Amino acid sequence: MFKYFLRIAFFIIFLNYTLFCYAKCKEMELPDFEKSLKKLEKVKLVFFSTWCLDCKEKLEKIKEFKSNKDNVILINTFTTKSNPDDVLKAFDLSDFTCVIDSSHKIRKRFSVDKVPKILDYSSTID
């Protein structure tokens, strides 16, 4: 009975760990996104989509930004079917902030018409 309890406890802990480590992407509208950008002096905006093979190649190189101590925001756009959290998990990018741009207003604000696209953004410019 005790072994059964331990197995259930382990499963619950593992499930919670997996959800909290990789459930990073959240929907965000343009006004909230712009507010969060103003808190950062400089940031790299990485626009990607889950179906895009070129994006996946670019995501493999994104970890270099972390080692350079750069602020990075991953922005999932042009996507309606796939879960971007799965992509983050596959590329071990769970440390990065990820935003889902389902309204496409963020990508339009930054004139992104194709992915992948990496922009250097400075809040001191706007």
Score class of each variant (00 low, 15 high):
Phe110Asp: 05
Asp92Leu: 08
Phe78Met: 10
Lys89Phe: 13
Ile100Met: 07
Lys89Asp: 04
Asp126Ile: 14
Ser67Gln: 10
Cys21Gln: 14
Phe11Met: 12
Ser67Pro: 00
Asp126Phe: 13
Ser67Tyr: 10
Ser122Met: 07
Thr50Leu: 04
Cys55Asn: 10
Met1Phe: 08
Thr79Tyr: 03
Lys24Met: 08
Lys56Gly: 04
Asp70Met: 03
His104Asn: 13
Ile62Asn: 06
Lys26Pro: 02
Ile75Cys: 00
Leu37Gln: 06
Asn83Ser: 13
Ile8Trp: 05
Leu40Val: 03
Asn71Met: 01
Ile62His: 04
Lys44Asp: 06
Cys52His: 12
Ile118Thr: 12
Asp92Gln: 11
Cys98Glu: 03
Ser123Cys: 09
Thr79Cys: 08
Ser82His: 09
Arg7Gln: 12
Ser82Leu: 15
Tyr4Pro: 01
Asp86Cys: 09
Leu88Cys: 04
Asn71Glu: 04
Glu34Val: 12
Thr50Asn: 11
Lys117His: 03
Phe11Val: 13
Ser103Gln: 10
Glu34Cys: 06
Leu6Arg: 10
Ser36Gly: 02
Lys35Asp: 06
Phe2Met: 09
Ala23Met: 10
Leu93Pro: 01
Ser123Ala: 14
Phe2Trp: 11
Phe2Gln: 09
Glu60Thr: 13
Thr97Val: 06
Asp92Thr: 07
Lys39Pro: 01
Asp120Leu: 10
